[in-house]
């Protein structure tokens, strides 16, 4: 059911053309942040307006859309964005990573490997990887122009001096094709390796900051590190208590006030898929039913 009061996918055609032109330039200069005339959307800035505008500019009526937040399809903001597109574009939706043609995400890359032809749209709060080192846009723009990324390396090195390792756990900066340093959005650094050489098109939208950037498929993306302190993708040292997966990113859930906790896949589609295939974790309620 689509809402006839608004244009297909909400945005007017001129706005979509403007975003589409920005997307093509973003693909042509991987990792470079293209300014675009971000519009006020009917959801707040900081809640995915950049991703929503990118998705709106990309969707066709034939698409199958999946929306996740923190890896889950049923988190409230994911529900809200999915409903927005059901209402304004009338597109089919799914929770299955494999069935989706367009996936809008906040803070995760799905566990199920993406394929050619899929588009992954990231919601980005602060697109500028240098922002917390240099608050001025006029300065950081110059730094990208001159490839002056020394400040970033100094910051990472100071971490090592103080903590013995790089103390950045999410939004871990990457370098794209040896040129632009890029913020991968606040995904856990566990997801960073999936950015590189990915068969899908990865698009990044930052609405409040009016920036779009992109990674074409099979783009080489390297997490910044040092020879003596190589990048390590880390996660909780547990297996999923529901599906038993040992290689997925986990959420920690506190189950009582005595310190009991369990670990579950943050990617709910991945976890339910594994459980449906018979995989069981330490605390799976299904394992009891079967027993």
């Amino acid at each position: 059911m689509s809402d006839d009061a608004y244009n297909f996918a909400y945005l007017d055609e001129q706005t979509k053309r403007m975003i589409r032109r920005a997307l093509l330039k973003a693909l042509a200069i991987p990792g470079y942040q293209v300014p675009f005339a971000s519009r006020e959307m009917p959801m707040p800035y900081g809640w995915g307006t950049g991703g929503v505008q990118v998705t709106a500019a990309c969707l066709t009526p034939d698409d199958v859309l999946k929306v996740i937040d923190q890896g889950a399809d049923d988190t409230t903001n994911a529900v809200s964005i999915r409903r927005f597109f059901q209402r304004t574009a009338g597109v089919a939706t799914t929770e299955s990573t494999a069935e989706a043609t367009v996936i809008q995400t906040r803070h995760r890359i799905p566990e199920t490997p993406l394929t050619e032809g899929q588009i992954l749209v990231y919601q980005v709060p602060i697109p500028e990887p240098l922002r917390f080192l240099e608050p001025r846009e006029t300065e950081t723009r110059k730094m990208h122009e001159l490839e002056e990324y020394g400040l970033m390396h100094v910051k990472l090195y100071e971490d090592i001096a103080r903590h013995g390792e790089i103390a950045t756990a999410y939004a871990y900066p990457v370098k794209v094709e040896g040129r632009y340093v890029m913020d991968p959005s606040p995904i856990p650094k566990f997801d960073n390796p999936k950015l590189s050489d990915n068969p899908a098109i990865q698009l990044f939208g930052a609405g409040r900051e009016s920036r779009i950037y992109a990674l074409p498929p099979y783009t080489q993306v390297v997490s910044l590190d040092f020879e003596d302190h190589p990048f390590r993708a880390s996660k909780a040292d547990h297996a999923c208590d529901l599906c038993g997966a040992a290689e997925s990113y986990l959420d920690e859930v506190i189950t009582d006030d005595a310190g009991s906790r369990m670990f579950v896949c943050s990617d709910t589609d991945f976890c339910t898929g594994r459980q449906a295939a018979g995989h069981r974790g330490r605390l799976s309620p299904l394992s009891k039913e079967i027993a």
């Binding site: 055609e13 979509k16 589409r20 042509a28 990309c58 009526p61 032809g117």
Partner: peptide, 19 residues
């Protein structure tokens, strides 16, 4: 049908530029 046809056309352009 500008909204739908340009959406399909853009996807072709996007796919071309991406690959």
């Amino acid at each position: 049908e500008p909204a739908v046809q340009s959406a399909h056309a853009f996807r072709a352009l996007l796919a071309a530029m991406a690959r």
